[in-house]
Amino acid sequence: MMTRLRRLAPVLALAALLSHAPAVSAQQAPQQMDEFVPIDKLPQQEQIPAANLLIPAYAFVWIAVLVYVGSIARRLGGVQRDVERLEADLKARK
């Protein structure tokens, strides 16, 4: 009996989770926006949690672009050296 219950436990847990899923998704249903409305002042309590998301967003963009530029510069430098070496070899052979 205990073994059977133990086997059924994951199935029961999944069933319980799924039965709650529609309720969870129903709680979070903000309206779709069709325009942004500006305001002058921001409520104080808004700033800290939003800043924790805003700063990583901007940091990610800057870091990703800089890393990509560095990657192109490194690859281009390598190929440029190959071109110069091969051109010198070709010249020496002639």
Partner: peptide, 10 residues
């Protein structure tokens, strides 16, 4: 300016 419903994160 900040957006009225989303605030700073917008």
């Amino acid at each position: 300016p900040f957006e009225s419903t989303m605030g700073l994160v917008q």
